[in-house]
Amino acid sequence: QSFTCPYCGKMGYTETSLQEHVTSEHAETSTEVICPICAALPGGDPNHVTDDFAAHLTLEHR
């Protein structure tokens, strides 16, 4: 399964590499985005909106 960065649209990330990408490239970004990992999880929330995606990844998807 691969994920797309909700900020810049780059594709092909794993859960881990998406977290690394967001932390390095978009750490200061506070735009509201939908978490693509939550959306892909069975029973996950397809509409989970977060305005601190880097922190959300760290808390929810480590």
Rank of each mutant, 00 (worst) to 15 (best):
Lys10Pro: 00
Glu25Val: 12
Val22Ala: 09
Glu60Met: 10
Val22Arg: 02
Phe53Leu: 02
Thr31Gly: 10
His61Met: 00
His21Tyr: 04
Leu57Gln: 02
Leu41Val: 14
Lys10Ile: 04
Ser24Lys: 08
Thr23Ala: 14
Ala39Pro: 06
Thr50Ser: 09
Asn47Thr: 14
His48Glu: 14
Ser17Trp: 03
Ser2Val: 06
Ile37Asn: 04
His26Leu: 05
Thr16Gln: 14
Gly44Met: 04
His21Ile: 02
Lys10Gln: 07
Val22Asp: 12
Ser17Ile: 06
Met11His: 15
Leu57Cys: 05
Cys8Ile: 00
Gly9Cys: 05
Asp51Val: 12
Ile34Thr: 12
Ser2Gln: 10
His56Leu: 00
Val49Trp: 12
Thr50Trp: 11
Asn47Cys: 09
Asp52Gly: 03
Val49Arg: 11
Cys38Trp: 02
Cys5Gln: 00
Leu59Lys: 14
Pro6Tyr: 02
His48Trp: 12
Val22Pro: 01
Ser30Asp: 11
His56Asp: 05
Cys38Glu: 06
Cys35Lys: 05
Cys35Tyr: 01
Val49Thr: 12
Ser24Met: 08
Pro42Ala: 09
Leu18Tyr: 15
Lys10Asn: 11
Thr29Lys: 12
Ser24Pro: 05
Gly43Leu: 04
Asp51Ala: 15
Phe3Arg: 01
Glu15His: 00
Leu59Asp: 13
His61Tyr: 00
Ala39Asp: 10
Cys35Thr: 06
Thr4Glu: 12
Tyr13Trp: 04
Cys38Gln: 07
Val22Trp: 09
Ala55Glu: 07
Arg62Gly: 15
Leu41His: 14
Lys10Met: 08
Ala39Gly: 05
Leu41Gly: 14
Gly12Lys: 05
Glu32Lys: 15
Thr16Ser: 12
His21Met: 02
Thr23Tyr: 12
Glu25Ala: 10
Phe53Thr: 04
Ser24Trp: 06
Ser2Cys: 02
Thr58Glu: 08
Tyr13Asp: 03
Pro42Tyr: 04
Leu59Gln: 15
Cys8Thr: 00
Gly44Gln: 13
His21Gln: 05
Ile34His: 05
His56Glu: 02
Thr4Leu: 08
Ile34Gln: 08
Glu25Asp: 05
Val49Tyr: 12
Glu25Ser: 10
Tyr13Phe: 08
Cys38Ala: 03
Ala27Gln: 08
Cys35Pro: 01
His48Gly: 11
Val22Gly: 07
Pro42Gly: 12
Gly12Leu: 00
Ser30His: 09
Cys5Phe: 00
Phe3Lys: 01
Ile34Asp: 02
His61Ala: 02
Ser30Pro: 04
Glu32Pro: 15
Gly43Ser: 10
Cys8Arg: 00
Thr4Trp: 01
Thr23Gln: 08
Cys5Leu: 00
Cys38Tyr: 03
Ser24Cys: 13
Asn47Asp: 12
Gly44Val: 09
Thr16Leu: 11
Ile37Leu: 11
Glu32Cys: 08
His56Ser: 01
Thr29Gly: 08
Thr23Pro: 15
Cys38His: 05
Gln19His: 05
Gly12Cys: 02
Glu60Asn: 07
Gly12Tyr: 01
Thr16Ala: 15
Asp51Lys: 15
Lys10Cys: 10
Thr50Ala: 07
His61Glu: 02
Thr50Phe: 11
Asp51Pro: 15
Leu57Ser: 06
Leu18Val: 02
Gly43Gln: 11
Gly43Met: 06
Asp45Val: 09
Pro46Leu: 07
Cys38Leu: 02
Val33Met: 03
Lys10Arg: 09
Ile34Phe: 01
Phe3Thr: 01
Thr4Ser: 13
Thr23Asn: 12
Gly9His: 06
Cys38Pro: 13
Cys8Gly: 00
His56Val: 00
Lys10Ser: 11
Cys38Asp: 04
Cys5Met: 00
Gln19Val: 10
Pro46Asp: 11
Gly9Gln: 09
Val49Asn: 11
Val33Trp: 01
Ser2Glu: 07
Gly44Lys: 14
Val22Cys: 15
Pro42Ser: 08
Arg62Met: 15
Asp52Tyr: 02
Gly44Tyr: 06
Ser30Glu: 08
Pro42Asp: 13
Gly44Ser: 14
Thr14Trp: 02
Asn47Ser: 13
Thr50Lys: 08
Leu18Gly: 03
Thr31Leu: 13
Cys5Pro: 00
